[in-house]
Every structure is written in C-alpha cells, then in structure tokens.
C-alpha cells in the first residue's frame, strides 16, 4: 500500500517535471534546445550518488551487524544506482554530441561517471563470483565501502587532469528562478522514483530469500 502511494507520487511528479522541462521553462539562449537535457542529467547523476551513498551505509551496517537486511539494502541500491549511472552516461553522450561535436569526450564529469560505473559493475561481479552468498555479501560490502570513499578522489583527480582547458559550462551566470524550479521538481521526481524502485527491489529480494529458505527446509 505504502509503495503504491510512493509510486503514484512519483508518477505525478514525473508528469509535472516533464511539463516543466519541455513546455514551461524557457530555452536557454547560448546553447539552445539541447540545454533542456540538463534537467534530466543532473537528477540522474545526483541519484547515482545517492544510491551509492546508501550502498556505503548499508555495507558498513552489514559488516558491523551482520544482518542480511543491510546487505539486501546495499545490493538493491547498487543495482538501481548502476541503472542511473548507465542512463547518466547515455544522456551525457547525447548532450556531448551537439555541444562538442563528439559522442564522447574525456570531460571530468563524464570521466568520473564512467569510473564510477566500472567500480559498481565490479561490485556486482564480486557477488556473482564469490564462493557462497555470505562471502559475496562480505566482499561486496568491502568494495561498497572502498568504492564510495574513492569517488571524491576520482572526481578531484579527473577535474585537475582536465582542468587546464575548461569545457563549456552549462550556464553562463546564475540559474533563473524558472530553471531552478524545473530542476528541483525534476530532482524530487527522480528521487521518489529511486525510493520506489529500491523498495520494489528489496521486496523482491526478500521474497526470493524466503522461497530459498522454504525449499531448503
């Protein structure tokens, strides 16, 4: 029931966000229509980070308390996070094409997102290649901790690396109020969607564990 309310809320916010992004907000002068993609990219990137923060917290709690629900939380959040990181990369490429004329550029944000994606793919791989489930959970928790701590260092290094010749920034000057509103609604819509997906994934995984337990007894 509660998850249905969340789903409904997420749907309403998503419709509102689409309206704001495509109809309400004025087109940016410098970059034109392509700038609208920004209202998708920023929430997605933010969600990837939020998801991996949850992985980090879940991982620590699992190692300390050894309760499988923390592992289920971390695992599910990593999966949702990977989906959003992949979308960020795709949307980033689509954005890069008209702006820089190429599908991919080693711009700091794109580069660190790619590294992030690789880290959490490895996180999911560790689970499937571990000898048993509890070992996979422990190993993944370690990767979840190390990976998240690595994120700021990766961002710092890639920014310094490309820092010498700054790429075009999305905004000249500050955010207009209409743009800020659109962005905030979009972020809210995506965040609720994240919690929706996370809840569904956790529920599914708990059911799976239940079934396996029943079949073993």
């Amino acid at each position: 029931m509660r998850s249905n309310i969340l789903l409904g809320l997420s749907f309403l916010l998503m419709v509102a966000a689409l309206y704001l992004v495509f109809i309400y907000v004025p087109t940016e002068k410098e970059m034109g229509i392509v700038q609208r993609i920004f209202y998708l990219m920023v929430p997605m990137g933010w969600l990837a980070l939020l998801a991996f923060l949850i992985v980090f917290i879940g991982s620590i709690l699992y190692l300390v308390k050894r309760e499988s629900r923390w592992d289920i939380l971390a695992h599910s959040s990593a999966e949702v996070g990977i989906v959003f990181t992949t979308l960020t990369l795709i949307v980033g490429s689509i954005w890069a094409k008209p702006v820089w004329g190429v599908w991919w550029t080693w711009e700091p944000r794109l580069t660190s997102t790619l590294v992030l994606w690789l880290i959490y793919v490895a996180y999911l791989m560790v689970r499937s290649l571990a000898a048993d489930e509890s070992q996979g959970a422990r190993f993944a928790a370690v990767v979840g901790i190390i990976g998240f701590i690595d994120i700021p260092i990766v961002v710092l290094a890639t920014t310094l690396w490309r820092g010498m010749h700054p790429g075009p920034i999305i905004f000249q000057g500050g955010l207009a109020p209409s743009m800020l509103l659109t962005l905030l609604v979009s972020i809210a819509a995506f965040t609720t969607l994240y919690f929706c997906l996370l809840g569904r994934r956790i529920g599914l995984r708990e059911a799976e564990a239940e079934i396996r337990k029943m079949s073993q007894d």
């Binding site: 048993d132 489930e133 509890s134 070992q135 996979g136 959970a137 564990a209 396996r212 337990k213 073993q216």
Partner: peptide
Amino acid sequence: TKSFGTHL
C-alpha cells in the same frame, strides 16, 4: 549456528 547465506 552458522549459516553461509541460506545454507545452514
């Protein structure tokens, strides 16, 4: 008790 995942 000791369980390895769902295996007891």
